[in-house]
């Protein structure tokens, strides 16, 4: 028997041994996982096939002799046989030519590929999937989606538990803070939340209709701010009726196209802020154009659910 077979057996054994030590003998082992099992099987197969092929060709080099008719030309003593191209090679060669023609003419025509085109296709496919899966969700599933969007996009300012990161952003676990309402009354609201140019005047533009249109006083601001922040309860109803109701409605639920609902925390209000951004007592919140309509709705549902 040729020495090479002996070496083949030894190397196979050593390599399979390494495979065994690195996977089966390790702490994790196969762990009954199909991927692990397939990987180890493939590793063993690779080792055996490699050794087999190497031995075959080394043997061939050892025993084969070239035969055939020599070409007449001799290049510095290096000759060439007139043999045909091996059949397999010829097939592969022709096949490659056919494939190359297909590749350039039909498969991936020259100049037809565009990275941006590929991106647009990817986006179209994703949007279609999104539509099919999420367009009609409501209720708890909408809140769930809102939570995941919130964690990805909103938590960097409002905190993972939506508590506002120690005052870095609004605490969303409560509907409104007194200081927020107070700030709006004193400084007005110029965030164009309802439509472009929609503004609430600052304190100089707020008059109490029940007191002969006298400008709102500090005491009145304090009272009505806590009245609104507490969900339209407690003292302050008279100030609200005199100052705020002409725009926000007697029940505080807003008037279409004039002023928003401030009696309740509605998802529509949150969506409005996501669309336009907002500048308030704490700081500036940017608008979130990158969220799509459904995602904004979902965030609205989630955020309003926090303070219920």
């Amino acid at each position: 028997m040729n020495k090479i077979y002996l070496w083949g057996v030894i190397i196979t054994a050593v390599m399979l041994g390494f495979t065994y030590m690195s996977v089966l003998g390790s702490k994790g082992g196969l762990n009954g996982d199909i991927i692990n099992i397939l990987t180890v099987a493939a590793a063993a197969a690779l080792v055996i096939i490699t050794i087999f092929v190497v031995i075959k060709y080394v043997r061939q080099m050892q025993v084969d002799t070239a035969t055939g008719e020599l070409a007449e030309e001799s290049w510095d003593g290096i000759g060439e046989y007139k043999n045909n191209v091996p059949f397999g090679w010829a097939i592969i060669f022709l096949g490659t030519m056919v494939w190359a023609t297909w590749y350039f003419v039909i498969g991936y025509p020259v100049n037809a590929f565009s990275q941006i085109g590929q991106y647009n296709e990817e986006v179209a496919v994703q949007n279609k999937k999104f539509e099919a899966k999420y367009a009609s969700i409501t209720g708890d599933r909408l809140v769930e989606m809102g939570e995941s969007v919130f964690l990805a996009e909103c938590a960097v300012c409002h905190g993972i538990s939506a508590d506002g990161n120690d005052g870095a952003a609004a605490n969303l676990n409560q509907r409104l803070e007194v200081k927020t309402v107070k700030h709006v009354i004193e400084h007005g609201s110029k965030n164009n939340l309802l439509y472009a140019g929609s503004e609430m005047p600052d304190r100089n533009g707020l008059m109490n209709a029940n007191k002969n249109y006298a400008p709102i006083t500090d005491a009145e601001i304090d009272t009505v701010a806590s009245y609104v922040a507490n969900g339209m309860t407690g003292p302050g109803a008279d100030v609200f009726a005199g100052v705020c109701s002409s725009c926000h409605g007697t029940d505080g639920k807003g008037i279409d196209g004039v002023a928003p609902n401030i009696a309740e925390f509605t998802p529509a209000f949150v969506v409005n802020i996501l669309n336009h951004g907002k500048k308030g007592v704490i700081g500036t919140m940017p608008k979130l154009d990158k969220l799509n309509k459904k995602q904004k709705e979902a965030v609205g549902a989630y955020v309003t659910s926090l303070s219920k």
Partner: peptide, 11 residues
Amino acid sequence: GNYRTTDWHEN
């Protein structure tokens, strides 16, 4: 600049 604000950067 589209999605963070001055006060956020400050914090």
